[in-house]
Amino acid sequence: MQLIDKNVIAKKRSGRLTLNNAMKWIFFLCTMVGLIVLVTLIVDTLMDAVGYLNMDFLTNFSSSRVESAGFYGAIIGSLWLMFVTVPVAIFLSVATALYLEEYAPKNKVTDFIKINISNLAGVPSVVFGLLGLAIFVRAMAMGNSVLAAGLTLALMILPVIVVSSQEAIRSVPSTVREASIGMGATKWQTVSRIILPAAIPGIITGIILAISRAIGETAPLVVIGVPTTLLVTPDGFLDSFQAMPMQIYAWIKMPQEEFQYLAAAGIIVLLAILILMNSVAIFIRNKFSRRY
């Protein structure tokens, strides 16, 4: 008895193959949309920036005169900022993710916390700015310092790293966990020697996304009141500072056309520094990935 009609199969075949081919092109076009927009933006910015990207721009402080205005204070300020944000955010989020995945009892409270951490990632950044203003700047009297802004940004990117770290930790096979525990290793030994090394590539992916967001974030800094006309770099974490996105924002607001070009130059520098920081992260990630 023949249950399957071979003619039907033959008739449907060309349709299946056409769809197969079409899907490939749809996906390709979607990729191109993002790519073209990105390339246009960068090329446009580069064209604006090209005459202004020079050593003076990198070494001068900000100024109301276009000829002498530079990005130095903002670059150094942003690096100070990242110096606070990145370690604090990584430490807090990886520890949180480890607790939630490895230690916390599996119950409704834990589930509730997990869901709300994901929701936290969607809170507008300006809200984190207000939080930072209320707690760090005012209540803890840190003023508009590197520390206050750094901690604010750390809180802002916390959920992103927590969620991606949770994913990475969860993807470590439980058989490997059991092998370690079954040999009399403690939980911490299992976590530090087996789970974390295996989860690091995934965790770093989250860190890269988070840093990219933190370094370009403007709204929380506006709320905290980061100055744009400072002529010194900070000497410590409680000093006031400038930041790249704030400086770019300030220049864009200026009426003279030349400042728009300075802003473009600032954007290019910001992107360059971001790429530099991310390549360090990618280097570390690849180092750990190769172990599989």
Binding site: T175, V176, E178, S180, G182, G184, R193, R291
Partner: peptide
């Protein structure tokens, strides 16, 4: 207890480490 009573599992479950590090894992721990 688990140090004295070792276990071999159903599916081979080596760590994503070198052969040496796999075997040295227990003593190191």
């Amino acid at each position: 207890l688990r140090t004295k009573v070792g276990m071999v599992f159903q599916k081979p479950n080596p760590f994503p480490k070198s052969i040496y590090d796999n075997v040295a894992y227990g003593p190191r721990v």
